[in-house]
Design a protein around this nucleic acid. Sequence first.
DNA 1: ATGAAAGCGCTAACAA
DNA 2: TTGTTAGCGCTTTCAT
Lengths: 343, 343
Amino acid sequence: MSRHNPCIASRRPSIRDLARETGLSTATVSQALNGMGRIPEATRRRVQEAAEQIGYRANVHARSLVTGRNMTFGVQVAGGDSATLLPQSGYFLELLNSASAAANERGYALVLTPPAVDRDSVARLAIDGAVIVDPTGAESLLELGPADGVPIVTAGRLPDAANGPAWVDNDHRAGTTEVLEHFWASGHRKPALLTSTGRQSYLADALAAYRDWCDRHGQEPLAVTAGRASNPNAAAEAALRMLGAENPPDAVFATLDELAVGVLRAARRLGLRVPDDLALAALTDSELMRATEPQITAIDLMPAEIGRASVALLTDLVERKQPSRGHQTVPSRLVLRGSTAAP
Amino acid sequence: MSRHNPCIASRRPSIRDLARETGLSTATVSQALNGMGRIPEATRRRVQEAAEQIGYRANVHARSLVTGRNMTFGVQVAGGDSATLLPQSGYFLELLNSASAAANERGYALVLTPPAVDRDSVARLAIDGAVIVDPTGAESLLELGPADGVPIVTAGRLPDAANGPAWVDNDHRAGTTEVLEHFWASGHRKPALLTSTGRQSYLADALAAYRDWCDRHGQEPLAVTAGRASNPNAAAEAALRMLGAENPPDAVFATLDELAVGVLRAARRLGLRVPDDLALAALTDSELMRATEPQITAIDLMPAEIGRASVALLTDLVERKQPSRGHQTVPSRLVLRGSTAAP
DNA sequence: ATGAAAGCGCTAACAA
DNA sequence: TTGTTAGCGCTTTCAT
């Protein structure tokens, strides 16, 4: 019946409407709109104009049904509780925005994937691939994805990056070394490392680079853990102990923005001048680093670049069916502020 | 040919495989899995078990093609540049996470929608509805959506909320009044209002409530604008002028977390004790408010609740085809900290 | 209570 | 160069 009653209630024009409009077949119309080179330019133009005219847009579900591709990527942010997530929220949000833009440029939609997915949700989400940001290794998608033919890219590395999925990351060893050299150049000879607990790769990287540097400079390493990550008070306490001990460090590199805030607080309490008595820098730049006094030197991890690169890598994996290895290193940038002196 | 060659290369089991497995027709199988009540419980169970057995999951595209529903919501975060976005990133991220969870609970996927969409992208995204977070009124989706039958819910109100889309928001007038009463209770008699520039509804709300309160308490209002939103330095300057003037305020309510940080800095520079000489509170709670010394009293806007409520409202709109008016107010919560004294 | 059949809108062989 | 045709996997009348 509906076929004999041509759209009184206005439905979206289908490819058949467009075929009728142009006097061509649906197959030709489809080719003209999507195919490459097979249709003469004149016809193609005619079809495109008619499409514009009647406001035709292809139905994505019909297309996906036949092509077998979803044109959708998933993005999963942080494996765990939102408490550990929020201190770095600026980082995540910037990453998310750029990843979304990059995906859309390539014709993919980006869907938010909840941290704990089961096989059912993976199927329902209908994603062609996924980016997992700062994985802990416990994310179910890490196994479920590849098992169901959904390639994964991680932003940040997994503990066993060698035979894990493709990844995008900063060179945190280089960044750490750069900070320590910056301390050195301004006359600070005894830097300490203040870390949070966690299995993230960047912590291991920072620690390794720190130990290397100490070795090369004949320093005894002083690496302190502040306990739970997102706690400036815990950091302040750890810093108080560290700075109040005999032969204290004259510089601190903190592996999280909030830790650096705690150090600053401790320094103030001890009457230490920053940067003269104590130089201070943080691994992750954030608005927090601009809100203190003095502002804190920090490494900008370029989250927008990380997001963009992750999507680019994922697209390659999905479209070119390349072997699912591969990785990319995004350069970070040391942002000098008042907590460290100019050399 | 493929129909005569039953899955040597393993494809996902289709409804026909399930029909064959159970000895039923595809129609019955479909009914058993989705229909309500029409199929005897025994049959239903049998089908469900067989589905489990062979790992059947319905193809979302095939289903959407026939039902005409996408089972997807869009979410758009911030209309403009990321500079104005990032200071509130914790707020957004929390909102996003809860919105995603709420959508998934209802069977919807949540796709990130870029700020500037055209009609093509709206069609390609294939969304049944969208949440726009903190709209400025300039978002193209605001018009494109409804024009294409995509209902919109805004988290935060539009300038002309009366005949705009459905919205979810806090009662910022009540929140503002609560803060002012809190100031009053601890003996602070002359509160000032420090705002950022912007067309957001919460600014107008705060200002209106502030003026009302001043009226009722026989105070001369002192409302100052700090210029561009996300700048603690600009806020500090504005605060310095305000606090250095004759007959200065003894309390400041700042409409953004970063502004409050600027005020704190100004107070320290002027040698004012907080909260004794100057009480301080902020409209938006964030990790920043816990990173200063003293920590800053702030209104927690319950972003997770906002996200959840927005999705709930959107679902109603989409599924029940209710008139697209309607709104919901989410209660906020005053978090008392060191920057204000106990009464 | 269950099945047969049509068709959602599109693409991709293959035919002309 | 273009058209014909056969589905993609599912839901939904309408029969039985």
